[in-house]
Design a binder for these strands. Structure first.
Length: 424
RNA sequence: GCGGGCGUCGCCAAGUGGUUAAGGCAGCGGCUUGUGGCGCCGCUAUUCGGGGGUUCGAAUCCCCUCGCUCGCCCCA
């Protein structure tokens, strides 16, 4: 068949699909800027080491999903599998300690080498939001409500919010000691994947989907029992306030999320209509990350929304594109340059103007204008060009009658009036 | 990395061993070089994802391979 195909797990977004993407993106950006969150753009390509350190060696993302290669200078580079590490890097690099707390967002492609399936691609897109330098539980609440409201603004129904707390770094390491102990004793009852994780990423075992493992885990030490007073109080404030804001949530003690750097709040928003890849938004607090990456000790919290999954959930009303305002039918040596000039003039009124370039017969051009459901048409042929005028017609879908007017090419005020009366 | 399903025109498809591989949509051309949504007519796959085999004969049967897709794992 054809010579070239896109790489597995990548997709082309054709104009028809992009209508919805652009509508969704517009709403997203609007919502974010209303919340006074500023955009940040970082490179898609980073040193491999950044992700190993930032995400964690034991994670699946780093262990088996990264697009890594050597560049011509023999440096190991990786296409970013997520956005947080890059943002943290950019902030540290630009002198974070001398800046006030920041609320940031980014949007763009991410890369993970996995088997594609519904709602999962190798190149996919995320919207990420990061609040850097905020410690209070109020920032957790704003982050969660923000994610929730964005999804609501897009008309997405039937979402489930799950939350959990992982405690601070001390809580976690106390728990981990005891949990590791228990794991060693009960090792043989665990599934193979979980056994492998004991040394690499023990917390992830909590999230195992294996039925037998889940059963045994009921006997394991609970993270909740290792939380300090302070951590517990923080968590209960979070829950109280979410309830006050009427945001429904479910506690999921097994929600630990895949990446190493989370502390305290972890959350996930899922939808039943997405199939097996149900998560549309995942996030949490990562107070240790910036320090772990060589920066100062600065707390932060964030989330990421998967845009492909978001598009899947967003309603059909977002698939509607802007209609053509004026379709310019033209043919003939004198007429064509005139039509071109006219199209430029009309676009200054912020109208969507399509100039027919086919040179096809007038009836064909009419059919094309019809098919596009253009609100109006302008006809310029050599007759008009000689008389220095053109015909403008309003398409009336209800009656088959149409309003028609002949306007001199020089008389811009009549044209302007016509546009104001009929198109604006 | 491991399972299941599927590959016939740009898209949706019929065809399940016998001469030229239906049909619909879209596209292009015409009826009608200059005035509308309709209609009618015509054109568009030497070939069925690719390779090999069985057979007088294969899109149809067998083997291999590639791709897509859904699921497992994991995540957005």
């Amino acid at each position: 068949m054809n010579n070239f195909k896109n790489l597995r797990g990548t997709v082309d977004l054709l104009p028809e699909q992009l209508v919805k993407w652009q509508n969704v993106e517009k709403i997203l950006v609007e919502q974010l800027s209303r919340a006074s969150i500023k955009e940040i753009r970082t490179p898609i390509l980073e040193m491999t080491e950044l992700f190993i350190r930032g995400i964690g060696e034991g994670t699946d993302v780093v262990a088996k999903e990264m697009y890594t290669f050597l560049d011509r200078g023999e440096r190991s580079c990786t296409l970013r599998p997520e956005g947080t590490a890059s943002v943290a890097r950019a902030l540290i690099q630009s002198g974070i300690s001398s800046k006030p707390p920041q609320k940031l967002w980014y949007m763009g492609p991410m890369f993970r080498y996995e088997r594609p399936q519904a709602g999962r691609q190798r190149q996919f897109h995320q919207l990420g939001v990061e609040f850097i330098g905020y410690q209070s539980v109020r920032s957790d609440i704003e982050i969660i409500t923000l994610a929730w409201d964005i999804l609501a603004k897009l008309g997405i129904k039937e979402l489930n919010l799950e939350i959990n707390t992982l405690g601070d770094i001390d809580d976690r390491s106390n728990f981990q000691k005891s949990f590791l102990n228990w794991l060693e004793i009960n090792k043989n009852f665990l599934d193979l994947d979980s056994q492998k994780r004991i040394n690499k990423n023990p917390l992830r075992i909590l999230d195992s989907k294996n039925v037998q493992t889940r059963e045994i885990l009921k006997e394991a030490p609970k993270l909740l029992d290792f939380l300090s007073e302070k951590s517990l109080e923080r968590y209960s404030t979070l829950k109280k306030q979410l309830a006050m804001l009427k945001i429904p949530f479910v506690q999921n003690y097994n929600l630990v999320r895949g990446l190493d750097y989370y502390t305290h709040t972890a959350f996930e928003i899922t939808s039943g209509s997405l199939g097996s890849q149900a998560t549309v938004c995942g996030g949490g607090r990562y107070d240790g990350l910036i320090e772990q990456m060589g920066g100062p000790k600065i707390p932060a919290i964030g989330f990421a929304i998967g845009l492909e999954r978001l598009i899947l959930l967003a309603g059909q009303e977002l698939e509607i594109s802007r209609k053509t305002d004026i379709y310019i039918i033209n043919q003939g040596l004198q007429a064509e340059p005139l039509a071109l000039e006219l199209s430029r003039k009309l676009r200054r009124y912020d109208l969507l103007v399509e100039l027919d370039l086919t040179g096809a017969s007038f009836s064909k051009q009419f059919k094309k204008a019809n098919k596009l459901k253009s609100k109006s048409i302008i006809i310029v042929g050599d007759d008009e060009a000689n008389k220095k005028e053109f015909v403008i017609k309003l398409f009336d879908k209800v009656n088959s009658e149409s309003k028609e007017e002949t306007i001199s090419i020089k008389n811009e005020s009549i044209l302007e009036k016509w546009i104001q009366n009929n198109l604006l």
